[in-house]
Design a protein around this nucleic acid. Structure first.
Lengths: 158, 158
DNA sequence: TGGTACACGGATACTTTTTGTCCGAGTAAG
DNA sequence: CTTACTCGGACAAAAAGTATCCGTGTACCA
């Protein structure tokens, strides 16, 4: 799994507590990560429609909708791609003992098992929203954590 | 996810229906895949203790225990590695707004969500055994499918 | 008992994906 | 209108995944 998923999720949580656009460079130095690479992930979020980019002098990124309506699965799919991790290459139709094509209308047993597991994985990610994550963060570190970060983002100093 | 997982799973299903050792090269031409690379996956299964390698002239691979006792998760972990797909880099402890180390005894909210999803994924894979897959294959293509493959493996012709 | 042939095992190149970086286009403020 | 700041996509480097080869050990056969 792509490591950028972690960055994107943390950024979404941070964006929960800001109303003014947050520049990618500032989010990068907040997490102490590569600014250029984080920009790539934010671009992916923008293409997926999860965040909206505001250009110009006071530009940056803002969530497009309520954090309650953004699931963790949305973020993961935006960064890592929507396709399934396991791809069936239909090896049952290859080789000397290949199954006949007309007998392969349904997915093979291996694919079914893997697809079922991935469905469970997706369901678990879909059940958690970015708002839930923000609530957990507040519960873990106290109410001042996110507000402090929000204030730091608005300030001009390092 | 590694593509070799598919090959390994299909091989395990095939090994269900054989008592004599099946050579890696023969399994490779059965599925029409790279013999050398399939050997790598089978070596991984051997290291994990799922299959036993028999050397010598009539050597090959055999399952070490009943297919009922080999879960799909066992095979996936043997080939792709046991570690979790999502790795938390603890970025909450980095940057100017870093959380204090003593406040980070528990995993962060992002890690908890991802770990929960992966647990669900693992549970789903653990619930399916290789024997289940073999049963599904028989149900899909008829009882003659696996027996035919078993006979082909024992024969000497291509 | 010696020879021979077969099959596994690890060490070795190549390809694709992931990771990381850069500079140009566009926009809003001054 | 100028200027400064932002995003966006195009461009390399690194890592993982993929594919291959030859050496080692073992069992069969003469």
């Amino acid at each position: 799994m792509s490591g950028g998923v972690e960055w994107a999720l943390h950024c979404c949580v941070v964006l929960t507590s800001v109303r003014e656009p947050a520049p990618a460079a500032r989010l990068a130095q907040l997490h102490d990560v590569s600014p250029s690479y984080l920009a790539k992930q934010l671009q992916a979020l923008s293409r997926a429609g999860l965040v909206r980019s505001v250009q110009g002098k006071a530009g940056g990124y803002v969530l497009t909708r309520s954090p309650e309506l953004i699931t963790v699965l949305d973020v993961v799919e935006a960064v890592d791609g929507p396709g399934p991790a396991f791809v069936c290459t239909e090896i049952r139709q290859r080789g000397p003992m290949a199954a006949s094509p007309e007998a392969c209308t349904a997915p093979c047993a291996v694919k079914r098992a893997m697809a079922g597991a991935e469905a469970a994985w997706r369901d678990a990610l879909r059940a958690v929203s970015v708002a839930d994550l923000a609530r957990d963060v507040t519960s873990d570190y106290g109410p001042g954590a996110l507000t402090g970060i929000s204030a730091w983002l608005g300030a001009t100093e390092a």
